[in-house]
Write a protein that binds this DNA or RNA. Structure first.
Length: 589
RNA sequence: GCGCUUGUAGCUCAACUGGAUAGAGCAUCGGCCUUCUAAGCCGAGGGUUGCAGGUUCAAGUCCUGCCAAGCGCACCA
C-alpha cells in the first residue's frame, strides 16, 4: 500500500466538487488547488485552498464555496472534523481510524516497504566524475554524498539504477600528470631538478613516483641517463609562454625517455590515482556500477561515429581549419569547436560522444550531477544531443553548488593543481563518515554551503546526525530493557490497543509516520535529499519530547503494548531513513 | 559587460514549490537526572526574509530594477 495522505484527501475533495453548482461550460477538473500539511494543529492535519482558488472563477466568496462543500466532506469517515477557517481554508482533522490504519500498515514488515513507483524503469545516474589528476577533495564530497543518496532513493522506489563515474583519462591534463610523476621519479634517481610550477604540486605525486621507484628502481631512467644529465630543458627560458614550455617539456620527455616508458608511467599514474579515488569513495560508502573511460571513446571509435553523424546532418562547419558545431541553432549561445585544427577532438566532442552512447541503452531517464562550475556546459551538451536527433526530455542535468571549507574561520583553498586542499578522506577521517554524509545531505543542492571543519569535528549538535541516531539508540535501549525485565515483545497487544494512543505527542508522531513515504517520494522527485534529513530531525525531535513525557515500560500491559508498538515503528522509519542516506544506526551510543 | 546560482535570527541551514502567527540546531540566559541513555527535555531572548517597486484574497517564494557574494562566458578539461 502506498501511504499518501494528501493524495487521499485530494481525491475526496475532487469528488466533492461535483456538489457545486457551476455553469455548464465550467470545467471543474481544470481547477488547480493544493492540499498541504498545516503548520499548527489548530488548522487540522491537512488543509486545502480549493475554495480560495475557485472564488474568482465562480465569482463567489471563498466562504460560500467552502460552506457548500462542507456537508459532503463531513460525511466522509476519514475525517473526525472538517472546518472552515481564515480567508476560506478548509481544514481537515483525520480520524483516529486513519492513523491506526497507518500504524497497522507500517507494522506489517520488519522494514518499511516503499511504493514501487519506478516499476523497474531504468535510470542512469552519473555523479562526481572528477578528473583523475589527484585525490578527491572536500568539494567532490558533496557530489558523492548527493549522488549516492539519490541512487538509494530511486532504488528504494523500485527503479533500476545504474551509477556511473566518467573517468577523464585522456587529454593534455593526463600528459601533465604523467610528466609531473616522471619529474619526481627522475628526482628519486638522483638528478637534482627544479620542479616546474605548472606541474601538479601535491605530495601524492611524489608518493606515486616512490611506488614507481620501489618497483623499477632506476630502470625507467638508466637507459637514457647519459643523454640527459640535467632536467633544465623543462625550464627552458627561451620559451616565454608557460603552457608552451610545459608542452615542449612533455614532448622532450616522450622523445628522450621513449614513448614506451612514458606510457608506462602514465598508465601507472592514472591507475594509482583511480585506485585512490575508488577506495576513498568506497570508504565513504559510495559504490559505482560502471567506471566509464574517456579513452575508450577514442579506441572504440564512438567519437568518430558522432563526428560523422554530425557531419552528415550538416551540423558542422569548417572555420580556421577547425570543425565547429553550430550549437546556436540548438539553443546554445555560441558555436563550439568539435575538432581542432590540429585534428584532435575537443573535450566537448568526447563528452557529447559519451552522452550519445548513454542514449543507446534504453534508459528511461539519464541524470548528470554537475558541479556548479560546469553549468555553462549544459546548454551545449543539450544542443549536441538534440542535433543528433535525441529526445532530451528525459535527460536531467542537476547542478550542485560548491561547498566552501572553513578552518579556524579561514576559507581553505581547493585547487588540485596547487596541492593545497583538504582531501575527502582527510575530512571523513577527522569528522566521521556518518557526520560528513549527513551534513552534506542537509543542504539543498542549489544552496552555496559553508562547511566548518572545527564545528563538524566537535561532534556536537552542530551535526544533527547524532540527534537522529540517538533517538534510534534510545528506542533500542527501551526494548532491550523491556526484554531484560522478563517480558517478550509482541506487537499484537499493541495493535489491539491503538485507541490508547491519544496524547499530543502520540498524535504528532502518528502524523509524521503517515508522511514518511511521501517525504521519500518527494526527495526523489525533486532531487532533494535534504527533505529526508529535515523529516528525520523532526521525527527524532518529536520522539525525544515524547520520551521525556511518559514512561514506556509499565505494568499497564495494554498501554505499554500500544506505546511500544508506536516506538517500534518510529525506530523502523528512522532506520529506513538513515539507511537511505547510508548513515549507520547504532543500537547503543 | 552577459549568463547561472544564492542572499532568511549573531553563525550553519529549513520553510512541503503562492497559503494562515517564517521554523530547527549551534551560540546566550533560566530551569529538569533516586525512574526506560542528560549526545536529551522544558522555557526565554533573538527577524522590516539584501533594498525598492509591482502582480492578488494571499509573496521569503512569481515579475521588474538596483545592491552584494560564488561560479561560468577557450581551437582548457
Amino acid at each position: 500500500m502506498e501511504l499518501d495522505m494528501k493524495k487521499d484527501v485530494k481525491n475526496i475533495i475532487t469528488a466533492a466538487l461535483n456538489e457545486l453548482e457551476v455553469p455548464v461550460s465550467f470545467d471543474l477538473k481544470s481547477v488547480v488547488f493544493s492540499v498541504d500539511y498545516t503548520k499548527t494543529r489548530e488548522h487540522g492535519d491537512v488543509a486545502t485552498n480549493v475554495a480560495l482558488k475557485l472564488s474568482k472563477l465562480l465569482s463567489r466568496s471563498p466562504q460560500v464555496i467552502a460552506s457548500s462543500l462542507l456537508g459532503v466532506l463531513r460525511e466522509n469517515s476519514l475525517f473526525e472534523k472538517v472546518e472552515i477557517k481564515g480567508p476560506g481554508f478548509i481544514n481537515f482533522f483525520l480520524s483516529a481510524d486513519y492513523y491506526h490504519g497507518v500504524l497497522v500498515e507500517l507494522s506489517k514488515n520488519n522494514n518499511v516497504i516503499m511504493p514501487n513507483i519506478g516499476d523497474g524503469k531504468k535510470i542512469l545516474l552519473e555523479y562526481v566524475s572528477a578528473n583523475p589528476t589527484g585525490p578527491l577533495h572536500v568539494g567532490h564530497g558533496r557530489g558523492a554524498a548527493y549522488g549516492s543518496v539519490l541512487a538509494s532513493l530511486y532504488i528504494a522506489l523500485g527503479y533500476d539504477v545504474v551509477s556511473e563515474y566518467y573517468l577523464n583519462d585522456a587529454g593534455r591534463q593526463m600528459d601533465i600528470l604523467a610528466f609531473s610523476v616522471w619529474f619526481r621519479y627522475v628526482e628519486l634517481c638522483g638528478v637534482g631538478v627544479a620542479y616546474p610550477d605548472k606541474c601538479y604540486q601535491g605530495a601524492y605525486i611524489i608518493d606515486i613516483a616512490k611506488d614507481l621507484y620501489a618497483e623499477h628502481v632506476d630502470a625507467l631512467y638508466a637507459p637514457y641517463a647519459k643523454n640527459m644529465p640535467s632536467m633544465d630543458f623543462a625550464l627552458n627560458d627561451s620559451i616565454e609562454d608557460e603552457d608552451q614550455r610545459l608542452d615542449a617539456g612533455i614532448a622532450t620527455c616522450k622523445d628522450i625517455a621513449s614513448v614506451e616508458i612514458y606510457n608506462l608511467i602514465s598508465r601507472h599514474t592514472v591507475n594509482a590515482i583511480r585506485g585512490g579515488i575508488v577506495s576513498d569513495l568506497a570508504a565513504f560508502r559510495v559504490e559505482y556500477d560502471n567506471w566509464f573511460s574517456e579513452k575508450s571513446l577514442y579506441s572504440d571509435g564512438v567519437i568518430d561515429k558522432v563526428f560523422n553523424s554530425l557531419l552528415l546532418k550538416e551540423c558542422l562547419y569548417v572555420k580556421d581549419g577547425a570543425y565547429w558545431f553550430a550549437a546556436t541553432n540548438w539553443g546554445d549561445e555560441k558555436d563550439r569547436v568539435f575538432k581542432r585544427s590540429s585534428g584532435d577532438y575537443t573535450y566537448f566532442a568526447a563528452d557529447l560522444a559519451y552522452h550519445w552512447q548513454k542514449f543507446q541503452h534504453g534508459y528511461n531517464r539519464i541524470i548528470d550531477v554537475f558541479g556548479a562550475d560546469h553549468h555553462g556546459y549544459a546548454p551545449r551538451l543539450r544542443a549536441g544531443l538534440k542535433a543528433l536527433g535525441l529526445d532530451t526530455n528525459d535527460f536531467e542535468i542537476l547542478l550542485l553548488q560548491f561547498a566552501n571549507l572553513f578552518r579556524s574561520g579561514q576559507k581553505v583553498s581547493m585547487s588540485t593543481r596547487s596541492g593545497e586542499f583538504v582531501t575527502l578522506s582527510q575530512l571523513y577521517n577527522e569528522v566521521g563518515v556518518d557526520a560528513t554524509r549527513y551534513f552534506y545531505s542537509t543542504c539543498k543542492p542549489q544552496q552555496h554551503m559553508d562547511f566548518d571543519l572545527d564545528v563538524a569535528k566537535k561532534k556536537s549538535m552542530d551535526n544533527p546526525v547524532f540527534y537522529v541516531q540517538y533517538a534510534y539508540a534510545r528506542i533500542c535501549g527501551i526494548f532491550s530493557k523491556y526484554e531484560d525485565s522478563g517480558f517478550s515483545w509482541n506487537q499484537i497487544v499493541g495493535l489491539e490497543n491503538l485507541d490508547l494512543l491519544s496524547t499530543e505527542h502520540e498524535q504528532k508522531i502518528m502524523l509524521l509516520l503517515a508522511k514518511y513515504e511521501e517525504v521519500v517520494v518527494a526527495s526523489a522527485d525533486s532531487y532533494s535529499p535534504h527533505l529526508l534529513t529535515g523529516y528525520l530531525q523532526e521525527l527524532a525531535s518529536c520522539f525525544h519530547s515524547y520520551y521525556n513525557s511518559v514512561t514506556f515500560i509499565s505494568n499497564e500491559t495494554n498501554m505499554c503494548g500500544a506505546r511500544l508498538l508506536l516506538l517500534s515503528i518510529v525506530s523502523k522509519v528512522i532506520r529506513s531513513g538513515l539507511s537511505l542516506l547510508s548513515v549507520e544506526y547504532p543500537e547503543k551510543m
